[in-house]
Design a protein around this nucleic acid. Structure first.
Lengths: 206, 206, 206, 206
DNA sequence: GATGAATGAGAATTCATTCAT
DNA sequence: CATGAATGAATTCTCATTCAT
């Protein structure tokens, strides 16, 4: 009777279905994952899925949504304690360094499939741009602060730099998506960090 | 005994089917494109497709193959007349600048879907790595020559640098895959050119 | 959690699909029968077939399996009450006599097509041999018991005799598979019975 | 210009196509053999096939026809020199003994597939019966002569005995069609010879 | 006559979604 | 409310036959 209990239960269930579906999607890909796969993995019924989500596509969107929010929130939170622009950039590269390559591949696959999917559906593009801009803003803020504090080159384009940052990162992940050694990946990632810092800072390291 | 149609005819037909299929793949994606779609677009029969290609996958592979070969060959040819490493890099960025964004999007979509597809098929990964290494070698050669001539930093890692180059390029394309203005894209691409040249050259431009 | 339909219902459904498929297979043959034919005959959907059987071949195997098991079980049960070897052989010939020729033809057609099919699929041959040996063992047991009791010739090869028995039976069915009068078939079957009894018994009838 | 030359050439070509097709049919079966298979095996064109035969089915019928005629003619010819009924039966069993099991399997497969095929086509049944009766007559003649000469039991049914003979033979082949050792096959075939001779002769061997 | 490229009607199988129980 | 059996449109690929060259 009490809607509160019911709503909490429903949200929990929704989240658990999404988690199970995410597991399957990262494992086999969105298209290749069948509703049957998800249902088997979760030990629930097909009907249950359809009482929480209107379609397989709906699950996908809600999932990407949840994940992007979580990423940006987590990063923003951790930036609280870092003041230097260079240190923030280093902190981000550190996070990239810490992520195992196989996990990166899994996520990249998930995101690429989502982008591909979004590319065919105009209404998703706006949605996508909204979330991408969160990641861009995060870096733009770093640059702006860095310019104010004199850490960053005054003539650096603060709109373009965030694109550069993410492009460098995503581009490298793309290079290593299908094959390549973890050690090589980390070493090149380190070079990238140098290249980026060299480019944005007034007085580059070494 | 002798074939009733020439080899030239067959190659032309093969190419025309591939062109039609590419049109459909870039329009709707590989998975979403049905053989029926291709056949309807080309005004031929289903059987014709299967007498030139063993499967939809085969068309995809031959297409990627053709394209990668063409790209590397065309670049290698044009490099004949350029001696300076910096000029070669600039030449490449010039080519990127000249490609209309909508066309880039089409190709990127095609390649991403192929990568995603290859990611699930271990036997395709080798195939893929073979061709990727062609693009990497091209840039590696530039760096090596540049180091010999003293144009490039002596301490530059000539194995990592090609990854950087392509990562930067592919990563930016990825950023603009779904949305973004052509002008912004070009402007950031210019910045990237600067970042890359600054990183690899002994005496960076201004 | 608990299934919405009972196991009994599912088994009944499985059996009904098998019955419908058998009807079609005996009518048109395995290869010539399409899944569409079966589905139309049963008034169900294509999907229903595939939720009970993994393929058309699977239906075929389960069908042959069911039938062979039923035959051997039914014979074994009825042998309980017969002690004499000669009577057991006579009982078997009696059963052959009772089967209408048109029905024999139907079954023979079914089994021959299955053998032909199995002949091209090495993994089915083992399966087939397992079931054939059931029929052979049944007769071998009769011979062995008959030798012990002194009914059968002591120098009779108890491994070969079962082959003889079934060869004689199947061979005659083969002769009458396409044409021939029911009366002729029965009369020759009677002669066969004599030939076989004469061959295996110490003191043949008349 | 001269039709004689042309006709001879045509007959030769017809026969060579038939031989090639037979090779393919015994190898893979009628249904599984594609016209492409035959054409590749023979090194001719598809059109050539269709200028000699109206369809794949037509090839099959003409082939079975040729083969049955050849078998009966060859046997009849060889019987010229044998007078005793028992010796004729032994001669036949000798021929069966000489045929390698793998070859028997190939032929049996071919004939079974043809029977199955004929079973669905009423107009082929008459055709089939005509040829089968040739094989039956051959043995019936032996029995009749044997009865006249006193070799065979006087009360033997000369209509039924030929069926028995061929049933015994075809039935054993059927038992060994899919698996079984060559040695076992030969040993049981010998037993069968004994069983048959015992049954038809007035004074059976040993 | 010979050729073999082209045809296109089918075939088996899959799977997101529904809805009776 | 949950369940999972049933649905059936959609998909890839095959191959006997034809017919322009």
């Amino acid at each position: 009777m009490s809607p509160k209990v019911s709503d909490a239960y429903k949200e929990e269930k929704r989240a658990s279905i999404l988690a199970g579906a995410l597991h399957c999607f990262t494992e086999k890909g969105f298209q290749a994952t069948t509703v049957e796969d998800i249902v088997r993995h979760l030990g629930i019924s097909k009907g249950a899925i359809y009482s929480y989500f209107s379609s397989k596509e709906d699950m996908y969107i809600q999932m990407a949504d949840d994940r992007m929010n979580a990423m940006v929130e987590s990063l923003s939170a951790q930036f609280k304690d870092i003041t230097s622009a260079a240190d923030k950039i280093r902190f981000l590269f550190d996070r990239f360094q810490k992520q195992p390559l196989h996990e990166l591949r899994k996520w990249l696959t998930f995101h690429m499939e989502f982008m591909l999917y979004a590319a065919r559906q105009p209404e998703l593009i706006d949605y996508f741009s909204k979330y991408s801009s969160k990641a861009l803003s995060l870096v733009q803020k770093i640059i702006e602060d860095g310019k104010k504090s004199g850490e960053c080159r005054a003539d650096l384009d603060e709109t373009a730099a965030p694109y550069l940052f993410w492009a460098v990162r995503d581009g490298l992940a793309l290079q290593f998506m299908l094959y390549g050694e973890e050690a090589d990946y980390r070493s090149i990632l380190k070079d990238m960090e140098n290249m980026v810092l060299r480019y944005i800072l007034k007085s580059p390291p070494n």
